[in-house]
Amino acid sequence: MGGIIEVRNLTAGYGGTAILENLTFDVHKGEIFVILGGSGCGKSTLLKHLIGLLPPLEGDILIEGKSLPKAEGRERQAILKRIGVSYQSGALFGSMTLSENVRLPLEEYTDLPNDALDLIAWMKLKLVGLENYVASLPSEVSGGMQKRAALARAMAMDPAVVFLDEPSAGLDPITSADLDALILRLNKTLGMTFVIVTHELPSIYAIADRVIMLDKKTKGIIAEGKPDDLRDHSDNAFVRQFFHREVTEVAE
C-alpha cells in the first residue's frame, strides 16, 4: 500500500529545462509532510507539479492511486476535488467576502442550498478562527487572517490532502506559530494530510512528521526523514549546515 500521494521517477521543470530529476517519494495518509530546501532549489516547482499546474517532463504523480498528469476532463476534476491548495499570497478573490471565497468551490461542485453553503462556510471559517469575519473582504483583514481564510477555502471540499505554499512567509513569529498550531490541530482532529513547502525551521520542528530536502546541485532529494534525525544524524554536510545554522540563529 503506497501513500496518499505517490511520486514516481518525476522529472520536474518547465520549458524543457529539468529542475529536479528522477524524484520518488510517498506522502502517507494523515501525516504532515514538509518539502524543504534552499531558495531556488525547485520547491515551488515541485509543488506546482503535485497540484497539477505543470505537467511532468517525465514520471508520474498518483493521488489516491490515480495519475494526475494522465487524467483529463471529469476524471481530472475528480482528482483535483480531492486536493486543496493555499497559495503563498493567499490568492483570495478580492471582490468576494471571506464567506463567499470559502463557498465558491462548494457552490460550483455541489447542489447544496444557499443556507447550507453559508453554514458550511461559517463552520470552515470557525475552524480557522475567523467566524467573526464572515462578511469581511480580504483587503479588510490582516495578512495572517488572509492566510487562514485561504486555508479554510482550501479545506472547503473536505480534501484528502491540503497543500500549503510557504504558509508562514510574511507573518510574524507569533502569528506563524498560531498558524502552525492550527495546522497541527486540523491534522490531529480531522486526520487531514498536509503537504507544506517552507524553509521556516521553527515551523518544521513544531509540526513536521516527515521532511524531504531538495538540492539545487544534485537536482534531487538529499535527505528524507524526521526533522530531528536530520539535524542530529545526517551524514550530509549541507543538510547539517542547513539545520544547524538556522538553529543557532533561532536560539539567539
Binding site: L106, T110, A116, M123, D158
Partner: peptide, 11 residues
C-alpha cells in the same frame, strides 16, 4: 459523514 453532513446535523 463529512463536513457537509456535519453542517446538516448541526443545522
Amino acid at each position: 459523514c463529512d463536513s457537509a453532513g456535519a453542517a446538516l446535523l448541526y443545522d
